[in-house]
Each structure stands twice: as C-alpha cells, then as structure tokens.
Design a binder for these strands. Structure first.
Lengths: 200, 200
DNA sequence: ACCTGAACACCGTTCAAGT
DNA sequence: ACCTGAACACCGTTCAAGT
C-alpha cells in the first residue's frame, strides 16, 4: 500500500547516515601520506580513497591542515606506544636507550611520512598539540634521569632526542648516500651517547 | 629624417633585454621563504617581488621545484662559508666543534626556512645536488677525525651532524616549549658529544 | 545529518602573440 | 630574447540544493 504519511516522512526524513567517518578519513590520509608524500595528501585523493566527494570531508574534519594535524597526532600516539613497549619503566637504562632508539628508527623507516610530520613539522595549524607531544618524551626522560642523574635529566633527554631524530631524519632523507655502514654509525652513536651521558 | 630601413629594424629588432635575472629570482625566493614560509613561496609571490609576471620566471628557472632547489643550493653555499670560517683547518678540534655547532645554530635561527630546506628536504626535485651537500661535511669530518681517530671518523662525523641538526630542528620547531634553559642544553650536548667521541 | 554539483579563488605551467 | 595575457589543470573551500 502507498505510504499514507509520505509528507510526514519527507519532513522527518531519516538523516543521511554517514558514508564515512573521521577515523576512516584519518586512516586514508595516513596511507596517502606514505604512498604519495605530504604533497600528494590532498582532499581530493583522500576523498577518493574513502569513497566520497571532497566537500563531504568537511563534515568530518575542519580542512586539510586540520586533517594533517590529526594524522600527526595519531602518529605520535602510535610512536608513544612503540617507545613504551621498547623501554618499559623498570628496564635497565642503557638497554632501554638502545631499544628505544631502535624502535624510533624502525618507525622512521616504516613510516617516513609520519616521522617527518612529527619531527619536521610544517605550519602550526598542522602540528600536534603540545600535550600529545609531551607524552612521547616520558620514556626518554626516565632513561635520561637514570643515566645522567636528576640535575642533568632534561639536558640529557634533549641530547638523546636530538641525536636520534637527527640521525633518522638524515637517513630518511638519503643524506648517507656515500659509503659507510649506516647501521654501524647508529650503534656507534647510541653507545657513545650512552657513555657520554652516564654519571661519572 | 625617417628611418629608411625601418623594415630591417623590425626584422632585427633588438631582443628584449632581461628585466630580471636568475640571481635576482633566487634572492627574492629566499626572502619570500623566510617571510612567508615554504608554502608561501609561490611563483606568483616571487614574480611580484622581482617585478615580472609569473610566466616570465620560466625563462630563467625551470619551475617552482627547480627554484626551491636553487634556493637550497645557495643556502648550502652560505652555510659552507659560515662553517669554514667558524672552524678553520688548523683550529683545535674541541673548540672548532663548539664554534661550528654555534655557527650552525645561528644560521638556523636567522634563516629557519633555509635550515629546514637543507636538513628536512622535500621531494628529490627540490633537493641540492649531492656534490653541493658533500662540501658542507668537510669541516665536520676534519673535526671528527681529530677527535675520534681515522677509524671512527665517519661515524663520529655522523653523530655530530645528527645531534646538531636534530637539536636545532627541534628548537626551530618550538619543541622545547616547556621550561629549561635551551642554551644550557646546547652547551651540555656539545660538551658531552666532544667527550664521547674523543679517543680514550 | 550528511552528501553532492557548482562555483570561486589560487596556484603551476604552457603557449601564442607581442616587442 | 624576453615579456605578457589567456588558457588549462589542479587544489582548497564554500554553499545551496538534494535525500
């Protein structure tokens, strides 16, 4: 039978259900980032990947910069989990430093786009909030405190982070083009940094 | 009197003289980079700065990526000069390390856009040629050789470069937001790195 | 409540036409 | 030999109209 209250139905039409979601969009953007680079991470490519038209994305995210920021924050979250797993609270600091550095390096090689988003960020509107970034520092700060003592903990943590992020950024960028064993240079650096920071 | 060979003049019309030059374009692009960021470095903004229309730029440079690369190469050239001046061939290595690190840091703070172009490069088409990048390493390699000895020179040089570039990249990015004395952390890192690499 | 086509501003790049 | 306007493809974003 014909619907007797089609007018009412039209007025109270069931709102169109989402054909995508913020989580799916962020995931698609992260994949596009690694596949095409930050330059190729466009609203159009992401929209095509999740199966909607570009304007629809604006119902879920505030725009491209905001989307890049969400991708960066998700990546920091993943990195925090990796570092926490590699360097548990009660682990011996020298071994923990080695494990955390190796975990960061693996992350950088697996997801160079995400690594760059975290350590070579663009305009402020695309950067993770400071609260998110702070959490990632916790394991390094613990290691630095045990190695260098509380008075130098902050400086030591910054030395570790600067060296590791700088090394991996160079490796990703292909700055180690000519010769040498990159693995050996990384191990050498880890050992020297650990020596240098250890309370004497 | 009327020119009797105006036809010939038209045929052999003096070619339009350049209203700009590659050097002026690269300079304008470098200024735009620092003033507006890499995102704001557009063919339109550069053209306006040198006083021509955007298509005219293509008579002097191959396109935006090529222009970015020229800016990067010019910046590397400037940096090489700064490092060479800060750490002369015959200087004592520990002092030279301190001076070179300080020079790099000053460069990064003065020209963050150029610094990022060198140490956090984008697509290959925008990167300085490897030959240019190699020259910048020379003073660091000399210092590393004297500190760590020839066998570990390459690894030591990579440790120095990774730490310094990572530290300054973080500082430029504002990653040292919360507390602590950044100058002290830099001095601490310099001293610890020098200790760690010194032949024992 | 979300999706869409159309539209606008902006950018990189090409090209025929000017001088 | 260089400069220009016009044009094209592409991108981010807005908005009225659909369901």
């Amino acid at each position: 039978m014909a619907n007797v209250n089609s007018l009412a139905d039209d007025r109270t039409a069931v709102p169109a259900p989402s054909r995508t979601s913020r989580a799916a969009i962020v995931r698609a953007a992260a994949e596009t980032l690694e596949a095409e680079g930050l330059h190729g991470l466009t609203m159009q490519s992401v929209a095509a990947r999740v199966g909607v038209r570009p304007p629809s994305l604006y119902k879920h995210v505030d725009g491209r910069d905001a989307l890049v920021r969400l991708v960066a924050e998700a990546a920091v979250g993943d990195l925090i989990a990796l570092l926490a797993a590699a360097a548990p609270e009660d682990s011996e600091p020298r071994g923990a430093l080695h494990a955390a550095a190796a975990a960061l390096r693996t992350f950088g090689k697996d997801r160079p786009g995400a690594f760059r988003l975290i350590f070579s960020p663009g305009p402020p509107s695309t950067r993770p909030g400071p609260d998110v970034a702070l959490l990632a520092v916790a394991p390094v700060l613990r290691i630095a405190t045990e190695l260098a003592g509380p008075d130098d903990a902050l400086e030591a943590a910054r030395t570790i982070t600067a060296w590791a992020s700088g090394f991996i950024a160079m490796e990703i960028a292909g700055a180690f083009g000519l010769g040498g064993d990159v693995d050996r240079a990384f191990d050498y650096g880890t050992a020297r940094i650990a020596d240098a920071l250890s309370r004497r």
